[in-house]
Amino acid sequence: MAKAEIRDVDPLTDAGANRPTRARQKTSKGKQGVASKALIHLVLLVTSLIFLTPLAWMISTSLKPIEETMKQPPVWIPSHIFWGNYWDAITYGSATLGYIPFLVYARNTLIVCILVVAGTVASNSLVAYSFARLRWPGRDIAFAATLATMMVPFPVVMVPIFGLFRDLGWIGTYRPLWVPAWFGGAFSIFLLRQFFRTIPFELSEAAKLDGCSEWRIFKDVILPLSKPALAVVALFSFLATWNDFLGPLIYLLDQKTFTLSLGLQFYQSQHGGTQWNLLMAASTIVIAPIIVLFFFTQRVFIQGIALTGLKG
């Protein structure tokens, strides 16, 4: 399925120049190639193992009884696998709180993610289309200004934005977390604009001759051709939202409305004690779907970024 999606786009880009074909790879194989490939393998393997160690440790811990989590020397394989941790992690704190926090946080996070991703894709594709394919006075200056906004760190505007949302009566609601996404953001605009510019302008001209409005061209010609780029923007915004800590920390008040990234802190009890095994079980549940998703979509994902052409 992933392959089919890439092929969809191929005719539109200068495929020959961009993608190495298998035939070409074979010709470049020499003796020196074998040695360096072995070296690359070795380095990548070691690096991968190093990168995976914390994760492996996380999973291993998530399956241990609490006594074993602090054993010296460290135990990699639990004496017996403690699947119960996962159940305990999910229901942790439900007796005190009167609801199942993990599921509640997961639901909240999902809702915010849906709203943010939908808003990001919808608003930024519109705006990027305007910057990429429509001519209007002051466009290039506006685009430069847009890029400049990437330099504004959140902490700078944190206080006034908090005041703004307070005046709107939005503190304690999800609105501060998702409404801004519907009004565009520089990074996504940039990525999508770069991609939209690679679509041949003749397509638009032809549609225009057929009497299509700009809206129709955008919706029926450009968007269907831009799926990989849209997917990349969606994924990036999904990850940013999924991981956002400061936003929920400031705007959400009731523990019941927390998102996962904020809620995970709950496993560190007030006295600094940590239910290691439960926290790790919870984290494993949190990232498992993302890992699976990435493993199967990585080609599309990387291709998508490549096609947006980060070159200025």
Binding site: G93, T96, F162, I171, L253
Partner: peptide, 17 residues
């Protein structure tokens, strides 16, 4: 149950909720 209760209370008072 609210963690970071000092910050949260301040923000809630400031936010009018």
């Amino acid at each position: 149950t609210i963690s970071n209760i000092q910050d949260k209370t301040l923000m809630a008072v400031a936010g009018g909720v």
